[in-house]
Amino acid sequence: MDKIAVLIPCYNESTTIGKVIRDFKRALPEAVIYVYDNNSSDGTDEAARREGAVVRYEKKQGKGEVIRTMFRDIDAHCYLMVDGDDTYPAEDAEKMSDLVLDKGIDMVIGDRLSSTYFEENKRLFHNMGNRVVRKLINLLFTNNIRDILTGYRAFSYRFAKTFPVLSKGFEIETEMTIHALDKNMHLDNVIISYKDRPQGSVSKLNTFSDGIKVLKMVAKLYRHYRPFSFFRIIAVILILLSAVFFVPVLGEYFRTGLVERFPTLIICGFLVVAALQSYFSGLILNVISTNQKQQFELSLNQFEEYKSMQDKEAGGNEPKTV
């Protein structure tokens, strides 16, 4: 098992990958650097191999697909995930890794938004999207995470091996954050500097299409992790909509003693029934969600026992270093 595994998912990053590998080798000489090439056509894999990185391949397109394979294939006491575009500084890597190795933190978030991100990133809608997603998730999940979409993170072995990856693309960072919040993982924040991509390096992130995917993922995970709150909101909306249509009908009845708009009254009744169904669906799904959390905690205990047995069988050897 590696002590520290630096994970670099790459798609056409030949311009910058060499420098990224050299920087992280200097910052973390004991780490093993893994570059996972995701169908690059510009020689990213050869550039990484020349710098001494372990190069592997993931044929399914998307960052989420790459992270799933990385976490499945690699065993390490600490995983440090970073993009291959040379936007994240290697000098923060040791501090982030130490929080995992020495403090038992499950996920360390490299916080760009509290430092230079908004000055360096010139894409207005990228900046707006980061703010919107951060506020939305902190509101829905009652937390104060400072950077939701950062690609610079450190993880414990426990997190990497118990995180069920559902995302295929750039929604993966959002999913990681929400999973950690829901499962009460130990989180920490390290403010990092950020610099925009160097000339010749092109972003693969589409502001609008990937932004919509992220928002869909937030809604999907909110429904999954907070079903009662999700369906209660729908129930309230339906009740309010029913009231909007019902009040004029009720007013006419008081004035004339007649119900002149029966179709509207029937629609109001259906809306109330739908609201009740939504409310009680949320209650039922909340019981299921609570049971899943209990099962996760039990499986986590079993995981810790298994890992402890593995460490004892290994005779307390030090993790592999390079």
Rank of each mutant, 00 (worst) to 15 (best):
M1G: 14
N12V: 08
T15H: 10
I21K: 02
D23P: 05
D23M: 02
F24T: 06
R26A: 13
P29M: 08
P29H: 11
E30P: 09
Y36P: 00
D37R: 00
S40E: 05
E46W: 02
A48C: 04
E51V: 07
V54L: 10
V55G: 01
V55M: 02
R56K: 12
Q61S: 14
Q61K: 15
K63I: 14
R68A: 07
R68V: 05
Y79P: 09
Y79Q: 08
M81N: 08
V82M: 04
V82N: 02
D85M: 10
D86R: 04
Y88S: 11
E91R: 15
D92W: 06
D92S: 10
A93Y: 03
S97A: 15
D98E: 14
V100W: 04
V100T: 01
K103F: 04
I105R: 01
D106H: 15
V108T: 03
D111M: 06
L113P: 00
S115Y: 07
F125R: 07
N138C: 11
N138E: 12
T142L: 06
T150Q: 07
R153N: 14
A160L: 07
F163M: 07
F163R: 02
L166S: 12
S167G: 07
S167H: 04
I172W: 00
M176N: 02
M185A: 04
L187I: 02
I191Q: 00
S193H: 15
S193I: 00
Y194T: 00
R197T: 04
S201T: 11
V202E: 04
T207I: 09
F208W: 08
I212Y: 07
V218Q: 05
R223D: 10
F228A: 13
I237L: 15
L240D: 08
S242M: 10
A243P: 03
V244A: 14
V244F: 05
V259W: 09
E260C: 07
F262R: 13
F262W: 15
P263M: 13
Q277M: 13
S278P: 12
L285Q: 10
I288R: 14
T290S: 13
N291W: 12
Q294K: 13
E297T: 12
L298W: 11
L298D: 14
L300G: 10
Q302S: 13
F303W: 14
E304S: 14
Y306K: 12
D311L: 10
K312W: 09
E313P: 01
A314Y: 06
N317D: 07
N317K: 14
